[in-house]
């Protein structure tokens, strides 16, 4: 079974909120002192892929569209025991739209060969647009399923479980498919063994330019789908009223009197 996992490197979503600053000019977040990390759902996708590989057999390839910095995320994927990695070096817009990314990934996947299963994270922790997966499925003409949290492979048939608003659904598909992975308790990304971290530097990580995969910067200019026209940090003008009172009972009384009307109106 050949599995390809597309991963995205993003600005650390756990950076302290007070450190978060935006550049009004470029309409992007300032890197500042924050780190770049692999998007968590992409790591869930890697973990899902590796578990399938370990249960059956085959090969897992990690693919990313990014800069030289992105190599770190791919190395980490290799340390998680992904077999090989490919990095398409980004040209032009530093925040390409979802369609541009989907086109790049589709071209890269065509270049890399045939895959039985393509996994992606359900959305990214930076822009969180969540469109790339669906668009890539269209580009590749593959059936897809979103919010998948576990996959079993049996004789070419994939059984996927996914989360819905009210519970779960199970779907089966034969032949190549694309799944957008969400987290569950079974796909918590593994901590790489140090031995594997050391080995990851000896595993193949190929870098491609857009030209290598048959695209030009104009093909994927990155703002023909949508364009960010404003990015700002909202200033919350909510003033929290701290409940006052001489005793805790009194405070609770005040709190209850504030809550009670809403409760009465909605019961």
């Amino acid at each position: 079974m050949k599995i390809l996992v597309c991963i995205k490197q993003i600005l650390d979503p756990d950076m302290p909120a007070r450190d978060f600053k935006v550049n009004a000019e470029t309409k992007e977040a300032e890197r500042g002192g924050a780190n770049l990390v692999t998007n968590i759902f992409c790591e869930n996708a890697l973990e899902t892929a590796l578990q399938i590989k370990e249960k059956t057999s085959g090969k897992v390839t990690a693919l990313s569209y990014g800069t030289d910095d992105t190599e770190d995320s791919l190395r980490k994927a290799l340390a998680m025991t992904v077999d090989e990695a490919a990095l398409i070096l980004r040209e032009g817009d530093s925040n390409p739209d979802a369609e541009a990314v989907a086109k790049v990934l589709a071209a890269a996947i065509t270049k890399l060969g045939e895959f039985d299963l393509i996994l992606m994270g359900r959305e990214s922790g930076d822009w969180g647009v969540g469109q790339t997966g669906g668009l890539l499925a269209e580009e590749l003409g593959l059936p897809s399923l979103a919010f998948v949290d576990s996959i079993e492979a049996n004789d070419g048939t994939l059984t996927m479980r996914r989360q819905t608003d009210s519970g779960t659904e199970t779907a089966t598909v034969t032949g190549p498919a694309l799944a957008l992975i969400t987290n569950n308790e079974f796909n918590v990304p593994r901590i790489p063994k140090t031995r594997d971290v050391m080995m990851s530097y000896r595993k193949p990580l190929e870098k491609f330019s857009l030209a290598d995969i048959g695209l030009s910067a104009e093909d994927v200019s990155g703002s023909s789908f949508y364009e960010v026209t404003d990015l700002s940090i909202p200033t919350k003008d909510v003033q929290c009223e701290f409940v006052e009172g001489d005793s805790i009972d009194e405070k609770i009384g005040v709190l209850a009197s504030k809550i009670q009307p809403v409760v009465a109106a909605n019961s």
Binding site: F20, D126, E227, D230, L231, I233, P234
Partner: peptide, 10 residues
Amino acid sequence: AYGGKAMSTY
């Protein structure tokens, strides 16, 4: 955007 840290207009 950015996990609720920012608002964005497209």
